[in-house]
């Protein structure tokens, strides 16, 4: 039950994009077409879960016992950057079909603050290992859900006549606000740990 609550909280209540504002650059950058949005979402689910687990282990088994907590930021970014490289090489060699789909989005993930942010939040909220695993998954799914919904609306807006100053990024942000408003309705649905 506890893990179910974490999943609901991660996907809807504390959606990483719309309620916590993490990962907005890829949110605006890859949402112009549905295909790129789906590719990016898949890549994020893949990397975020792995990064969440690995950074949790490194923090609690290496940094914390050795009193190196202040090195958290630099360790995490290095772990994420090398993880992304590793995943890229692994996919290229063994699952070329998936690599072709995710290909160009993988390098972008290194600078996606949703990944780094989720890892830091997992540590800050003092989650246990299983909680961190479930929370990372929920955050990633929430990211994908928001991104795909947003891309769907944005494809339609391309056909609409938007006033000149509001065009492109500006109208996209207003739309994001409206989607965020609809996610706001989930506020208070669960009182979970994350």
């Amino acid at each position: 039950m506890e893990y179910f609550e974490i999943i609901i909280a991660g996907i809807f209540v504390n959606n990483i994009l719309l309620a916590q504002f993490l990962g907005n650059c890829p949110f605006l950058g890859t949402s112009k077409k549905m295909e790129t949005a789906v590719g990016m979402s898949m890549a994020v689910v893949f990397v975020l879960v792995m990064a969440g687990v690995i950074t949790w282990i490194i923090f609690h088994k290496i940094l914390d016992p050795n009193k190196l907590v202040y090195l958290r930021t630099i360790t995490f970014i290095l772990v994420i950057a090398s993880l992304v490289q590793f995943v890229e090489m692994f996919l290229k060699k063994s699952i070329p079909a998936l690599y072709a789909g995710l290909g160009i989005f993988l390098p972008l993930i290194t600078t996606n603050c949703a990944v780094m942010g989720a890892c830091v939040i997992n540590i800050d909220k003092e989650l246990t290992f299983l909680q961190a695993l479930v929370a990372s998954f929920a955050y990633a799914v929430g990211f994908g859900l928001a991104l795909i919904l947003f891309a769907g609306v944005r494809e339609r807006v391309l056909l609409a006549r938007v006033p000149k100053p509001l065009q492109d990024t500006s109208i996209a942000l207003v739309i994001a606000g409206v989607i965020s408003l609809s996610f706001y309705a989930f506020q208070g649905m669960v009182q979970a740990v994350i």
Partner: peptide
Amino acid sequence: APGAFVALGLMLA
């Protein structure tokens, strides 16, 4: 949260 997006979007405009 929603206000942040709308405010930034309108300021961009």
